[in-house]
Amino acid sequence: MSPARLTRPVSPLIAVLLLALLCALLPARAAASAPPRLATIDWTIAETLLGLGITPLAVAQTDSYRDWVGAPQLPDSVADLGLRAQPNLELLADLAPERILISPMFASLESRLSQIAPVATVGLYAREGPLWPNLLAATREIAELAGRPQAAERLIADSQARIAALADTLPPIERPLLMVQFMDARHVRVFGDHSLYDAVLDRLGLANAWTGATNSWGFSLVGLEALAGIDARLVVVEPLPVGVEAALADSGLWRHLEPVRRERVVTLPPVWSFGGLLSAQRFAEQLAAALRAAEMSDEGDTP
Rank of each mutant, 00 (worst) to 15 (best):
R203N: 07
R189K: 13
W210Y: 13
A167P: 02
A28S: 06
G223H: 04
E47T: 01
L109Q: 15
A207I: 00
A232W: 05
P239R: 03
R29C: 11
P72W: 07
N208I: 01
R112I: 02
D67C: 04
S251Q: 09
E90F: 01
I156K: 05
L92Y: 09
R189V: 03
A143C: 07
A58Q: 07
P239K: 00
P56M: 09
A294H: 14
A157I: 01
M183W: 09
D202N: 13
V59D: 14
R233N: 06
G147Q: 01
W68H: 12
T211L: 03
D94F: 02
G300L: 12
A30Y: 05
L50K: 12
A20K: 02
Q86G: 02
L253I: 11
A280Q: 06
G53F: 13
D42L: 05
P171E: 02
G205P: 09
L92R: 14
A207R: 15
L257D: 00
M183S: 09
A39L: 02
C23N: 08
L196Y: 08
P87S: 03
F106G: 00
G223F: 01
A4H: 10
S216N: 13
R175M: 13
G223K: 06
Y65E: 12
A137Y: 10
L18P: 03
V237M: 03
V242L: 12
S108D: 12
L74F: 13
G205T: 10
F219D: 10
L166P: 04
V180Y: 05
L221T: 14
G300S: 08
I156W: 06
W272Y: 15
Y125G: 10
C23Y: 00
R66L: 10
P259R: 02
L52F: 07
E258D: 14
G70Y: 07
R154K: 11
D193S: 11
R189E: 13
E47L: 05
L206N: 10
E110D: 11
I45D: 10
Q115C: 05
V222L: 07
M179S: 11
F219R: 02
I230G: 04
L17M: 13
V266S: 04
L19P: 00
G82N: 04
S33W: 00
P56H: 11
A146D: 07
A71Q: 13
A85Q: 15
V235R: 03
A164L: 03
A151D: 10
Q160I: 04
L57K: 05
Q150M: 02
R99G: 05
D42E: 13
S216I: 14
L74D: 14
R37Q: 15
I163S: 04
G252Q: 15
E98V: 02
S216M: 14
A152I: 00
I156Y: 03
P12Y: 02
L83K: 04
T7E: 07
D250R: 15
Q86I: 08
D94C: 01
S251Y: 06
Y125T: 06
V236W: 08
R264C: 00
T211M: 01
L253W: 03
A294W: 09
A213M: 08
P172C: 01
L253T: 15
T7V: 14
Y125D: 01
E144Y: 00
L13C: 01
T40G: 12
N134H: 04
A151I: 05
S2E: 09
H187F: 12
L83F: 09
P270N: 04
L166Q: 10
